[in-house]
Design a protein around this nucleic acid. Structure first.
Length: 111
DNA sequence: CGGGTGACTCAAA
DNA sequence: TTTTGAGCCACCC
């Protein structure tokens, strides 16, 4: 795609590509974008992107599958409920069977 | 260019 | 297993 676009824009696109019932990690996105060290930026980008309802930011979790960003959502468990609504099992803020729902852009998109 | 920021990540204890 | 501490980098002043 157009690398000329901002890093944030790329994060938005990848996040929008996350299929229903799947999740991905900040590191996976960062790695896919070629900035593996900038996983934090992915989260920060999503922080801004979350203003855009077209971006399923709730499908992005940290490397362990923990809903680290849930505190940034409206409620305290909105993010969890959104994921559970998609069939993702979550236990104590952590996704169960993460490998089963993990969507790796580097594998799926492969560029 | 420099500094602040942060929904991360890794390593060590 | 969890908790600290430090490193990381893109965006915005």
């Amino acid at each position: 795609m157009d690398e000329k676009k901002g890093f944030f824009e790329q994060v938005y696109e990848v996040t929008r590509l996350i299929p229903y019932g799947k999740v991905t990690t900040y590191g996976a996105i960062a790695t896919y974008l070629g900035t593996a060290k900038s996983a934090r930026m992915v989260g920060w980008a999503l922080n801004v992107s979350k203003l855009d309802e077209t971006i399923p930011a709730h499908r992005v979790v940290n490397r362990r599958g923990i809903l680290t960003g849930k505190h940034h959502f409206e409620g305290t468990n909105l993010m969890q409920q959104l994921l559970e609504n998609e069939g993702v099992e979550i236990y104590n803020n952590q996704i169960k069977n993460l490998e089963n729902v993990l969507w790796n852009p580097s594998e799926e998109l492969k560029a």
